[in-house]
């Protein structure tokens, strides 16, 4: 088991994206504390898997964050917090962390995203990383500190951990007649996904 390495469309090749999913995480408190104390060894996007409906949903946020980084228009301290922010439909940062980020005592399944930046990028200046860590180093570090079951980040696994009541609330999907009319469950999911993504895309507009 290891992380999944991904090359997203319209992202320079020097930017590498790693995805991981840990189920039944026991130490959310510890991980949350590392983020709060800005521990530079924990430069990850930790996302509560219950708020994620699919890979496309997740990757849309990752793309949006890296695009902001490339444009120099990050609204949060770094690309990892920006990923969590990008899942939101408005510009309230603390709301975004609370809803999509890791929550002590509540987060059970955890999506981890790690973005490796090119060593000399200007965006990298305020980050502590001096050399590019490789896949094994990153995975080793996560394995050591995340107490949970490593799981492949597939649509099936993500669907199992989705809390639809939350998703419907966060993305204002309640009371949409056109959704309720769809009887085919797969088609309904697809429509939900597209509404979630347009909601994220319209953030701040």
């Amino acid at each position: 088991m290891s992380l999944e390495k991904l090359q997203l469309e319209h992202i320079p090749l020097e930017y590498q994206v790693y995805l991981g999913l840990f189920r039944n995480v026991a130490n959310a408190d510890f991980l949350h504390k590392q983020l709060l104390s800005r521990n530079s060894e924990f430069e990850y996007a930790f996302i509560d898997a219950s708020t994620i409906i699919s890979r496309i949903h997740l990757l849309s946020a990752v793309y949006s964050a890296i695009n902001s980084l490339l444009n120099g228009s990050l609204r949060t301290p770094n690309v990892h917090s920006e990923i969590v922010m990008s899942l939101n439909t408005n510009n309230n940062i603390s709301d975004a962390y609370r809803r999509w980020g890791i929550t002590p005592g509540k987060t059970r399944d955890l999506v981890v995203v790690k973005v490796i930046l090119p060593p000399n990028s200007t965006a990298n200046q305020n980050l502590s990383q001096t050399q590019t860590p490789d896949e094994q180093t990153i995975y080793g570090h996560l394995e050591q500190h995340v107490q949970g079951t490593p799981t492949p980040v597939t649509d099936e696994e993500l669907a199992q951990t989705t809390d639809w009541a939350k998703v419907r609330k966060y993305y204002r999907l309640n009371g949409i007649q056109s959704l309720d009319k769809i009887s085919d469950e797969r088609e309904k999911r697809k429509q939900c996904e597209s509404l979630v993504i347009v909601g994220m895309a319209l953030r701040g507009l």
Partner: peptide, 17 residues
């Protein structure tokens, strides 16, 4: 977005900059 929410057939929006 409005059209998608109301079920009018239009393209879905993926990303905006």
């Amino acid at each position: 977005e409005r059209c998608r929410r109301e079920g009018v057939p239009v393209p879905a929006v993926y990303a905006i900059d």
